[in-house]
Simulated assay, not measured.
Amino acid sequence: MPTGVALRDVREQLFDAAERVLLRAGPSALTSRAVTTEAGCAKGVLHRHFADFDAFLAELVLDRIARIDDQAAALRDSAGTGTVVGHLAGALTDLFGTVAVAIVGLVTFRDDLRARLRKAGPAGIPVLREATAMIASYLDAERERGRIAADADIGTLAPTLIGAGHLLFADREGTPPTAAAVDKVVTTVIAGVVREPPR
């Protein structure tokens, strides 16, 4: 294995390599050797940048959570445009059609990682917790614009949408759900509170 490979952004290249391994082979295959092999660098590179492998995995999860925060801002800014169903279906697909489902599996699979993340943030399952907050914030913005009923129980709707979306996309080896399937789930969950014509 070459040891002199120049890596521009070591952290990001290692994170991207970890994602590829995770998506291809699942959490049980994610080791420091698998990550560095995938990144095309020496194993020591990872350990020069992170205290240990669980520290690396925790930083990976936190980095991906930051991406959800960016997605949340864009989703909230879209309130009042397009359709509520369209925005929610798109958000669920963007979230779970990527590495988020695999990250949730990783957190569930590794006890040490879960314990480390508990110290770094509030209670709940990382990624799902932030995704639920993203959906709740968007629903709240739509409620302010009158497109969601004033009495809508956003505290129940948001986790219901996240749970349903997670289940739709959970089988990483199967065929991803169609856009129509995601739309149907979203339409069903928000049917009683949406105040706009259906798509």
Rank of each mutant, 00 (worst) to 15 (best):
P159F: 12
R145E: 14
R143E: 00
I148T: 06
A152D: 04
A89R: 11
V85E: 15
E130S: 04
H166P: 00
A120F: 06
L128G: 03
R118Q: 14
L92F: 08
L106T: 00
I103L: 15
T108H: 12
I162S: 12
G121V: 04
F50N: 08
L161P: 11
Y138T: 01
G165N: 06
V85G: 00
G163R: 14
A29P: 02
A58E: 10
F56S: 06
E59R: 15
A149W: 08
T83G: 13
G82F: 00
E38R: 14
A133I: 04
P126H: 04
D111A: 11
R48H: 15
A133R: 07
D52I: 01
E144P: 00
L30S: 08
L30C: 11
A102T: 08
A102D: 13
A34Y: 07
P159S: 13
H47W: 09
P27C: 12
T37Q: 10
I148W: 07
G121R: 13
A102N: 11
R129T: 02
T31S: 15
T83A: 13
G165Y: 10
A89H: 12
L117K: 01
I154K: 10
L46M: 12
V61K: 04
R116E: 05
R145C: 11
I135L: 12
D69S: 08
G97W: 02
A152N: 05
D52N: 06
H87C: 07
A58D: 05
A51E: 13
L88A: 13
R143Q: 12
A66V: 02
V45W: 09
V127C: 01
F50Q: 02
A149R: 15
R116M: 06
R48G: 03
A131N: 09
A51L: 07
A72M: 03
A120E: 15
A39M: 05
T83D: 11
A89G: 12
R110I: 02
C41P: 03
A136S: 11
A74E: 13
H87G: 09
G82Y: 06
T156A: 14
R116K: 14
T93M: 03
K43Q: 13
I154H: 07
V107S: 05
G90I: 03
D153A: 14
R145L: 15
Y138R: 09
L113D: 12
D94M: 14
G80H: 09
H166D: 10
H49N: 15
G146S: 12
V101R: 11
R116C: 03
I154G: 08
E130C: 06
V85T: 13
G40H: 09
R33T: 14
A123T: 08
A74W: 05
L168T: 11
A51K: 07
A91E: 15
T108R: 14
S28G: 14
L117P: 04
V101N: 09
A74P: 05
R110D: 15
R110N: 01
T36P: 03
V35K: 06
A79T: 13
A42V: 02
H166L: 12
